[in-house]
Design a protein around this nucleic acid. Structure first.
Lengths: 98, 98
DNA sequence: CTGCATCCGGAATGATACTG
DNA sequence: CAGTATCATTCCGGATGCAG
């Protein structure tokens, strides 16, 4: 399996990269991600578990019943790929040239 | 919708980036992609149609019943994102450090 | 009130057989 | 060789329920 396939195996599912992109701005809580991305709650829970298992993010306990999700070093390493993809997305039809 | 979401809308489906990665080496024919990537034939046809519609690749007629798929400029612009993702994939568990 | 699990219908994906 | 048609399976998304 190629390295690209291995990467897509981890972050190739529907919301993974969007979640990581949001976390590049700093740790976020569950509800923040949910409202900000519009991701269904069950999908968010599933992706967060997978991304945590893959070492992309980790849970930071805040107070009881409240925690934040923060990128690990491996998660932050996705920044370049995410930025490259987002820049590519700028040139797609339907995006104003700003 | 963010630029990343727009990009994933085009190349976020299961085989899209793997197909483009393969085409970065130069134009390929249907059977080449199918055997090289192990992608199911119907998925390959679907993705090729979508990627062509999105302006990522184009068909090059070779002879009767034979054509090749080649990246457009927009398709080649995905190279950076793909390479970034592939480099990220190198550091995942299960990959030897070489 | 926030963080999740479960249930269920619909969409995406995959295996295989068949056609021009 | 380059696809299409069909059907099984798996994934996704919205609603709802429930625990801390």
């Amino acid at each position: 399996m190629s390295n690209l396939a291995a990467a897509l195996d981890v972050v190739g599912s529907r919301w993974a990269l969007l979640i990581v992109e949001r976390l590049l701005d700093g740790p976020q809580r569950y509800g923040d991600l949910q409202r900000d991305l519009g991701v269904p709650t069950n999908m968010l829970a599933t992706r967060l578990r997978e991304l945590e298992a893959a070492g992309v993010l980790s849970r930071l306990p805040l107070r009881h019943n409240t925690r934040a999700y923060a990128l690990t070093d491996r998660g932050r390493a996705l920044g370049e790929a995410i930025n490259a993809l987002a820049r590519w997305g700028e040139d797609l039809p339907g995006n104003d040239a700003d």
